[in-house]
Design a protein around this nucleic acid. Structure first.
Lengths: 215, 215
DNA sequence: TCACGCTCCTGTGTATACACAGACTAGCGG
DNA sequence: CCGCTAGTCTGTGTATACACAGGAGCGTGA
């Protein structure tokens, strides 16, 4: 794997998991020594992170890790709403029914995944991630998928301030089930509306817990 | 200005104006000599162009300028529809009325701009561009604006295969006028629908003339 | 004559050295 | 004591040199 790729993934992971907290200054020499690559590939990695919106140039001070406020969360969801609704619509029109029927079955049993043996709910988030990939594939639109892929890292970072409780995750599983069914049936309008509902509820939940943690 | 910025703008301009045609291989040394910068800033520029979707890596062969097909046009508009509708909606909710009332007046007299003295219709496209910027400002959503800004270069490139005729531009001016009025009045739903209509008509016009040029 | 393999060569990926700009600090003057 | 200025110094921006991989072309053998 290329050194620039390794540096990008390592830094992104550090930011998404809050090992590099908002406001941290990323000096090039410091980070290149820490990650064991030279400045050239590191700069490429930092450029990509800046394009992702995870770091920003602070005049004269170099790059700093961007913060997360309730404002940014609302803004991210304003974009997410329209991107994911469109993706659901297109996926419903162009999907391979078998794929989404299989996913529907998985979401039916999803509540079983949300037990105490997996406190981080990794198995559940993994299912959601595979669902996202299936939708991406089905849209057949690389530009839309590209926009979604730059958005998703930011959403992962938000999870940390929102800490889903089990009740919310069970509800979310039900909402996902409806979206998957709509796509499997080729019902574009329902897929979009179900996505709208799901994201509305997600945002409300995120904001409720973020208010406690950020304020 | 930084060398990497100059190289990026120069290459982007060359691609958007079809001086570098689709399929052209961009070798690093060749381009760095042509533009008078070294390989380091040039690579940064190429990276940004790749993120914009204007160039793509062709395994082993380096970077090539991407092509434009009717498929890609349709896909770009599937993304553009939802982004611009959302931008119009948010702008209607948060706009400074004075700004959009002034723009409304300008669009009222826009047909006068479309005469023979300006065969490239630069003045008109300039007005549209100022309108886009006003909408961007009004949305107050940097993530949405970012997605739109990466999309727009691709749309400029499409103009070349679609060659708007004067009749279409007069109609488009009318459609824009309605969007501006809706935003000025704070009518979000109308702003979104008027944008939908405008882009639907634009796409139909683009595809009609693109079929002749690309097929 | 065709197929396989080896060599060369072009081009990307990475490291490092140098130049310059902006910010912090210390010292001096008012 | 405060403010301004000059100098230093850290850090970014750019150039260049080197390493390595992939492909093309040529040669040889069957």
């Amino acid at each position: 794997m290329r050194a620039s790729e390794r540096a990008y993934l390592a830094l992104r992971d550090d930011i998404l998991h809050w090992r590099l907290e908002p406001g941290t200054v990323l000096a090039e020499v410091e980070q290149s020594e820490r990650l064991g690559v030279s400045r050239t590939p590191l700069r490429e990695a930092l450029g990509r992170l800046a394009a992702d919106g995870l770091v920003a140039t602070q005049r004269g001070r170099g790059l700093v890790v961007t913060g997360v406020s309730t404002d940014t969360i609302v803004q991210l969801f304003e974009l997410r709403q329209v991107l994911e609704q469109q993706a659901a619509r297109l996926a419903a029109q162009r999907r391979d029914a078998d794929v989404f029927e299989a996913l529907r079955d998985e979401f039916t049993t999803a509540p079983d995944l949300l037990d105490d043996r997996d406190p981080e709910h990794g198995t559940y988030y993994d299912l959601v991630s595979r669902f996202d990939s299936a939708v991406d594939d089905a849209t057949g639109n690389p530009y839309l998928v590209g926009a979604l892929r730059t958005l998703r890292p930011q959403l992962v970072r938000i999870r940390r301030v929102s800490r889903d409780d089990r009740a919310r995750l069970r509800a979310a599983a039900g909402e996902h089930q409806l979206i998957v069914e709509a796509i499997a049936h080729g019902d574009a309008a329902l897929a979009a509306s179900a996505t709208h509902v799901h994201l509305h509820n997600s945002l409300r939940n995120v904001l409720a817990s973020a208010e406690r943690k950020l304020a």
